[in-house]
């Protein structure tokens, strides 16, 4: 019998406690810095080594390079760079393998669209996706390193 009233006391007290739910669509959820979100791509840094396309487990990255416009310089520069987010699993392998950190992860995760075509992101879009970049991968900042 007493238990019934105890239970009612607990539920009554619960009414004024802080809510555990998040106002998600209105307030974005802040992800931790190591979150694997949508990639940011920097064409300036890319050396067209093709490592990211080779390591990608779902083969969602396709890229083409072209000769450097300055004939005195060796190597290539990037021409097109596409990631197909229909099949990308955001596994972080492309950013791990990239020797120049031309492709790095951001904290953004919203990929819902109305059409499949909208999920095929090109170089321009990936370059413009420069908000909430993973802090560890910004090369101008000092590395955290092992302490």
């Amino acid at each position: 019998m007493l238990g019934l009233f105890k239970g009612m006391g607990i539920t009554l007290k619960n009414m004024t406690k802080p809510k555990v739910t998040l106002g998600y669509p209105h307030e974005p959820i802040k992800m931790p810095d190591r979150f694997r979100g949508i990639q940011h791509f920097d064409p300036e840094k890319c050396i067209v080594c093709n490592q990211c396309a080779r390591i990608c487990p779902t083969n969602c990255i396709s890229l083409t390079g072209k000769k450097h416009p300055d004939p005195n310089k060796r190597g290539k520069i990037i021409n097109t760079y596409d990631i197909n987010f229909e099949i990308c699993i955001l596994c972080d392998l492309c950013t791990e393998v990239c020797p120049t950190e031309a492709i790095i992860m951001t904290n953004r995760y919203e990929l819902a669209t109305y059409s499949r075509e909208a999920l095929l992101k090109d170089m321009k879009w990936l370059h413009a996706n420069d908000q909430m970049i993973r802090q560890d991968n910004i090369s101008s900042k000092p590395k955290r390193g092992g302490k």
Binding site: N14, K19, T21
Partner: peptide
């Protein structure tokens, strides 16, 4: 609303 508050939710908003 009341059931929401008791379950630490907000109820319909």
């Amino acid at each position: 609303k009341v059931i929401g508050w008791i379950q630490l939710r907000k109820g319909p908003t």
